[in-house]
Design a protein around this nucleic acid. Sequence first.
DNA 1: TGTCCTTAGGTGCAGCTTGCCTATAGGTGC
DNA 2: GCACCTATAGGCAAGCTGCACCTAAGGACA
Lengths: 143, 143
Amino acid sequence: MRSARSPHASEPPGACAMRNLYRFVEPVILYMLKCKGHSYGYDLAGELSRYAFTGAAIEKAALYRTLRHLEDNGFVVSGWEFHATGPARRIYSLTPQGERHLEEWAALLNDLSRSMSRFVARVRSAHENHKEVKAGAAALPAR
Amino acid sequence: MRSARSPHASEPPGACAMRNLYRFVEPVILYMLKCKGHSYGYDLAGELSRYAFTGAAIEKAALYRTLRHLEDNGFVVSGWEFHATGPARRIYSLTPQGERHLEEWAALLNDLSRSMSRFVARVRSAHENHKEVKAGAAALPAR
DNA sequence: TGTCCTTAGGTGCAGCTTGCCTATAGGTGC
DNA sequence: GCACCTATAGGCAAGCTGCACCTAAGGACA
């Protein structure tokens, strides 16, 4: 495991996540590693768009940096894998802390999702009320 | 209106938002201005926590900067208001573009909310499957 | 041999955002 | 005079992002 660099290294996602969401790269990578068992950067990069839940493309650099960040925090571990052909691969897999971290992410995203849909509902009802108020204040059939 | 500064000044929230979510300060401020009709920084700061949908506190500096950013982009307009007592207030109100921007934000947040809850469901079903696999592989009554 | 493509894993850097701290300035209470 | 409240805002160090670039191994092709 690599040594800690981030000032938020030991914070739970709830404390740190809203500080920096890492564009949701982190939970997606954790989930992919959970599904695949283990994988490496180049492979993950190829499938990120299938797993990502935002339309935004995920940068290759962001992917590698997030993997390093996750390892700094003990959520994944890595080791080199050598093949007869092609360059070596750094294979990552989840640690038990990483499993928990993914669950924390899921809880956080669940809360955020609910809060967001509540907010959207409020915005849309405000929009409806606004239209009604305008129509009522005008007290005229049409315009 | 102030002159544009941001390189993403004219982009819709869908294009720019995932690049920088501004910690969701922007849609909250737009919504507050819509509800209140008009308001000023210090007043908004006092009520932000009631309207914000993330637990994260919103920085005073972030609030003022976001207001300026919104004005740079033509989503709000401002004017000074002087009172017999206390310092002058810069009063902000929504423009028609600002109204549309809030609706775009609502659409974006709605999509994001749905994507997030789908992701959460997938994570949780993966978690269940994992437990089943482990239990099945063990083929033992307990522990 | 030289060049180019694919796989694979990074680094460097400019530009932008964030959070904390500080400045400014009018007014009130003691 | 001094502290405190209202009100807006700037400075700055840290951190994050996106793009460009680099290294290196192997294979294809001429």
